[in-house]
C-alpha cells in the first residue's frame, strides 16, 4: 500500500477503494472529512457507523470502522438502540435527505426532542440520487427533478424543508446543530468534529447537515456543479445553529 494511500484518512478501508460513488459526487468529500475528524480525534475504536438506504448505502464497507447498513429511514433508531446498549461508544447515523427528512422524519425529530446522545449526519443534495434523481423534501422551488419535470411548485409539492432550522427550534441547549457544505470541506470537518465532541463529552444530541452536490442527477458539469452549490448556499445557510 504505502504511498499510494498516503492522503487517505487512516480510518478509511483501502481494500474497498476506489469507492462506488459516482464521479464528482459529494458523499466522498463528506466521508473524507468524517474520516479525518475520526483520525484527528483518535476515536476509531469506539465509533460505530450506521448507514441508511439510498446513496449512503455505498459506504457500507467504506471505513475500517464497525458498520452496519440498515433500512430506509431506520438508521436513527438503530443508532439510539446501539447507544443505549453501549453508552461508551460513539454512534453515527449517516443518512440522506430522504431517509432523514421524509421516510424517517419522525425519528430525526424524536431523537432531537429526546436529546439522544447520537450524531446524525444528513447529506442534502436536493434530490433522491440512488433512485434516479426524484424530488426530495430538500428540493428547491422551481428545481427540476425526474418527478418535478416542470420544477417544484409550492401549491403542488409543498415547501422545501430546512432541517437544521427546524431542529434548532426544538433541541436542548446542550445539543449541537449545524449545516456545512462540501464546497468548504474544512469548515464542514470542524462542524463534524464539534458534533462528535458533543456526543463524547456532553452525551447529548448532535446533528450536521452536509449540503452536497449530485452532478449525475443535476446533469451539471464541474463548473455548473460548483455554481449550483453556491446558489444553494444562499437558501441553505451554512452555519452553526
Amino acid at each position: 500500500m504505502g504511498n499510494k494511500f498516503q492522503n487517505f484518512p487512516k480510518s478509511w478501508k483501502t481494500k474497498s477503494k476506489p469507492h462506488l460513488f459516482c464521479p464528482g459526487c459529494g458523499h466522498p468529500i463528506v466521508l473524507k472529512m468524517l474520516g479525518q475528524a475520526i483520525d484527528e480525534m483518535e476515536i476509531a475504536k469506539k465509533t460505530v457507523f450506521l448507514i441508511d438506504i439510498g446513496c449512503s448505502l455505498l459506504a457500507w464497507d467504506f471505513f475500517n470502522l464497525d458498520t452496519s447498513q440498515t433500512h430506509h429511514g431506520r438508521t436513527i433508531p438503530v443508532a439510539v438502540g446501539f447507544k443505549m446498549a453501549r453508552p461508551d461508544s460513539l454512534v453515527i447515523a449517516y443518512v440522506g435527505d430522504g431517509g432523514g427528512y421524509a421516510i424517517g422524519l419522525q425519528h430525526t425529530l424524536s431523537v432531537a426532542l429526546r436529546n439522544n446522545p447520537i450524531t446524525t449526519i444528513l447529506v442534502n443534495n436536493t434530490n433522491y440520487g440512488m433512485t434516479g434523481g426524484q424530488m426530495a423534501p430538500t428540493t428547491l422551488l422551481e428545481e427540476k427533478t425526474s418527478t418535478t419535470p416542470l420544477g417544484r411548485q409550492i401549491d403542488i409539492h409543498g415547501q422545501t424543508i430546512k432541517g437544521p432550522e427546524i431542529l434548532a427550534g426544538v433541541v436542548a441547549d446542550s445539543a449541537y446543530v449545524a449545516r456545512g457544505s462540501v464546497r468548504q470541506p474544512l469548515v464542514l470537518k470542524n462542524y463534524l468534529k464539534r458534533a462528535l465532541q458533543t456526543q463524547l463529552e456532553k452525551q447529548t444530541f448532535s446533528f450536521v447537515e452536509a449540503l452536497s452536490f449530485c452532478p449525475t442527477n443535476w446533469k451539471t458539469a464541474a463548473k455548473e456543479t460548483l455554481e449550483q452549490i453556491e446558489k444553494l448556499e444562499e437558501q441553505f445557510v451554512c452555519k452553526e445553529f
Binding site: 433500512h71 431506520r74 438503530v78 419522525q106
Partner: peptide, 16 residues
C-alpha cells in the same frame, strides 16, 4: 415514536 423505531431500536441494541 412508532413501532418501526421500536423494532430497529432492538436491532441496534442487539448489534451491541
Amino acid at each position: 415514536e412508532d413501532e418501526m423505531a421500536a423494532g430497529f431500536g432492538v436491532i441496534g441494541a442487539c448489534l451491541a
